[in-house]
Amino acid sequence: MSKLSELAVIVEYGKLREVEAAVAAALDEGNAPIDVLNVGLVDPINVLGEKFRLGEIFVPELLIASRCMKTGVEKVRPMLSGGDVKSLGRAICATVAGDMHDIGKNLVALLMGSAGFEVVDIGMDVEPEAVVEALRENPDTKIIGLSALLTTTMYSMKDTIEALEEAGLRDRVKVMVGGAPVNQKFADQIGADGYATNATSAVDLAKKLVGVSG
């Protein structure tokens, strides 16, 4: 097996401690950094992402492999030119004000990261103004994902969208919403651009919103 294929296997199986050495071995073998990135690091995540979507693997398998990929990317990044690292774009994820439930938001953030988004996770109980501030700090953001578990807090999503409108930033981003009490009708009522029922379909939705087919 080539060192490049070995690297892909190590990433796929989530062997975190072996990734850096495997990246070095693949480079030593004479592979171009861009091939190490695409074939050795990104491809296995795409394979796992599909397996996860089909229900063949568990979420920690995908997430641990993603940590491997990120570790590997840091290693090859200095050798790549700016355009080499492809990203689907930046996304901000938050659990809205008043709500301390973030495991669903975390899952969406992690899966979006695995799928190729650069995710800025700004945590839970996030006030509308803080979302606006995060967007100012990350002006290239394409998507804002808002989450709530409680029927009492889901209206913070509406407040957040209104805050974006007042700041004059609403048109610059797509807003997607989710969480147990949320549905498509609510998403439409508050003027969100999309709603997804679970983390996997949230990734598909995010891709659709930025114009990449899922």
Partner: peptide
């Protein structure tokens, strides 16, 4: 405020 989804222990 952390999570266990990406922990090898979880897997």
């Amino acid at each position: 405020k952390g999570h266990y989804l990406s922990e090898e222990h979880t897997l």
